[in-house]
Simulated assay, not measured.
Amino acid sequence: MTSPPSRPGVRPDLAEVFRRNYPRVVGVAARVLGSPDSAEDVAQEVFLAFGRSSVPTGEAGGWLSVAAAHTALNLLRDGRRRAVREENAATGTDAVAGDVADDVVVREERTRVRAALARLPRRQAVVLVLRHSGLSYAEVATALDMSPGSIGTTVRRAEAALRKELNGHASSG
């Protein structure tokens, strides 16, 4: 019995890799962008790129997580945040419970953190995004081809850089 013919240019493992990794890819992108809709768009781009790649199946999870973080950060850095602001505004105006002032402060703080994250060196931003998206130190190390023992230090330094960026920007603005 032969396997069904695959479409030209499509990896035979794509469907399985997609099923296994889609939630994580969307989660990583959503952590950066703050918008489920934008995160799904990023996931689509990432899986299209994976489909054209020669990344070994066993390395797919790490590759996809890093690609999601990079793609989402590129979206921030390119200034295409209008969709995120519209999404946040739509959900903020429909809120029935809660204090409007608190909602505004939370939204502004998230926007401030995302902007600071976009100003960090890419490696620091990616380490923070992956770690705060729920990946273990070992998973972050594998995804970024780093020593597992160095991840804690790298995360702490990236967090310090983010705090410095936030504090520096707050005092100058």
Rank of each mutant, 00 (worst) to 15 (best):
Q124R: 15
R122C: 02
A125L: 07
T142F: 09
M146K: 13
N88Q: 15
R77L: 07
G79N: 12
R131T: 13
Y137V: 04
R107C: 01
I151A: 03
R107S: 11
G152A: 09
A83W: 04
V96P: 01
R122A: 14
S150V: 14
R85L: 11
R77E: 02
H132G: 00
A161Y: 11
R82H: 04
R119H: 03
G149T: 12
R107P: 00
G149K: 06
S150L: 08
A97L: 12
A158C: 03
E159A: 05
T142A: 15
R163G: 03
G98A: 06
V96F: 11
A90C: 02
V126W: 00
Y137S: 05
R107I: 10
R112M: 08
L128W: 14
R112F: 14
R81F: 03
G79A: 08
R82F: 06
L166G: 08
L75E: 02
A97R: 12
V84S: 05
D78M: 05
V113K: 09
A89S: 06
D99M: 10
D99S: 15
V127M: 01
R112L: 11
R122M: 07
A83G: 12
A89Q: 11
D94M: 06
L162R: 05
R157E: 00
R112K: 09
R114Q: 14
D103H: 06
E139G: 15
E165T: 15
R81V: 05
L130H: 06
S147K: 07
S150P: 00
T93W: 05
L75H: 11
A89H: 09
A115H: 08
Y137K: 08
R107M: 07
L120T: 06
T142N: 12
T93G: 02
L135E: 05
N167T: 07
T93V: 10
V84W: 01
R81S: 04
V113Y: 08
K164G: 09
G92I: 11
I151W: 00
E86A: 13
L117F: 08
E165D: 13
N167F: 08
V104F: 03
M146T: 10
V126Q: 08
D99C: 13
K164I: 07
M146R: 15
V105C: 00
R77P: 04
A97H: 11
G152L: 01
G92W: 10
R122L: 07
R156E: 05
E108K: 08
D99R: 13
S133N: 05
L166R: 14
T111P: 00
L144M: 14
V106F: 07
T91E: 09
T153E: 04
A83L: 11
V84T: 15
A101H: 11
E165N: 08
A141R: 05
L130T: 13
A143M: 13
